[in-house]
Design a protein around this nucleic acid. Structure first.
Length: 275
DNA sequence: CCGCGGGCCTGAGAGC
DNA sequence: TGCTCTCAGGCCCGCG
């Protein structure tokens, strides 16, 4: 998409989770895409007029790349039958490619802002640090935990603390760190001026699990695909997520994976080695 | 300000 | 086969 002009945008409904902004399609028409980026779970498209297109996939959003020219059948090893029922937005590009946004549950959204205002946008104003960036370390994690009345699961899911962890990677990081999802967050706060050993362990576990998951192409529970259509395979490396009843994989732990509900969402953990 | 529960949507899978 | 129920990768909002 980089360096390519947007010839036309077609919205096939009024909005997704939120209504599209005023004159959304018209404002994108004729713009050239200067850069593509990401912050937390938001996709960012820099346009040549200083505007930024913000997009979020929600739970079930995806993009499909369609070439103008018909490719001989069989060339796309991974191509699947395509349900166009939930194709909500189509970007027509000057290089003959169409980018189709599909989202059955419509929890995703698209919005427009400017580069100057991006950090004040409602979705960005309160975002915490990138988990793999230099601004996130054991110190920052310990600081965020100080005085928090809630548990570790909720803290890690809170995008204001660290931005980009979801349910899977929170469960996996807590297991790797040997910390219970029910543990009070405040017990990770600094003691006598230094981050606790627990905060260091959790920070390292977060980085490890994200780095490994990225290298594995992410986790394909049902929809997720890499850009070439292949499947992520980190789901095969899950130690707790969606493994209720399975033996704990941490030797020599003899526990088993349990499921519980925290703030309405499933948590998977081993109570014998996560304390 | 904080934390919690409910809500937004559709579809897949289990159980009957 | 088909019905009903539960659950799902995320995030926002209103309430207390």
């Amino acid at each position: 998409m980089r360096g390519v002009k947007i010839l036309k945008v077609v919205c096939r409904r009024d909005g997704l989770r939120f209504p599209f902004p005023d004159a959304f399609a018209q404002r994108l028409k004729g713009r050239t895409i200067e850069a593509l980026g990401r912050r937390a779970k938001y996709l960012l498209v820099d346009l040549d007029d200083g505007c930024v297109l913000i997009m979020h996939l929600g739970m079930s959003g995806s993009f499909r790349v369609e070439a103008e020219t018909v490719v001989a059948p069989g060339n796309f090893h991974h191509e699947r039958s395509t349900d166009r029922t939930h194709d909500h937005v189509v970007f027509y590009l000057s290089n003959g490619v169409r980018i189709v946004y599909n989202d059955p549950r419509r929890f995703g959204f698209m919005d427009l802002t400017t580069r100057l205002e991006l950090n004040q946008h409602a979705s960005f104003r309160n975002l915490g640090a990138e988990p793999l960036g230099n601004a996130f370390g054991p110190e920052e994690l310990a600081l965020a935990c100080a005085g928090k009345r809630t548990n570790l699961k909720a803290v890690l899911l809170d995008q204001r603390v660290v931005a980009g962890l979801g349910n899977i990677y929170v469960c996996e990081a807590l297991h790797r760190a040997g910390l219970s999802p029910n543990r009070s967050a405040s017990t990770l706060a600094k003691q006598s001026g230094a981050p606790t050993e627990r905060a260091r362990r959790l920070h390292e576990a977060i980085r490890d699990v994200l780095t490994e998951a990225l290298a594995a192409g992410g986790s394909t529970l049902r929809d997720h695909r890499l850009t070439d259509g292949s499947l992520g395979y980190f789901q095969h490396a899950f130690r707790v997520y969606d493994r209720e009843g399975a033996p704990c994989s941490r030797a020599p732990c003899k526990g088993s994976v349990e499921r519980l509900i925290q703030s309405g969402r499933s948590t998977f953990f081993c109570r014998s080695c996560q304390r």
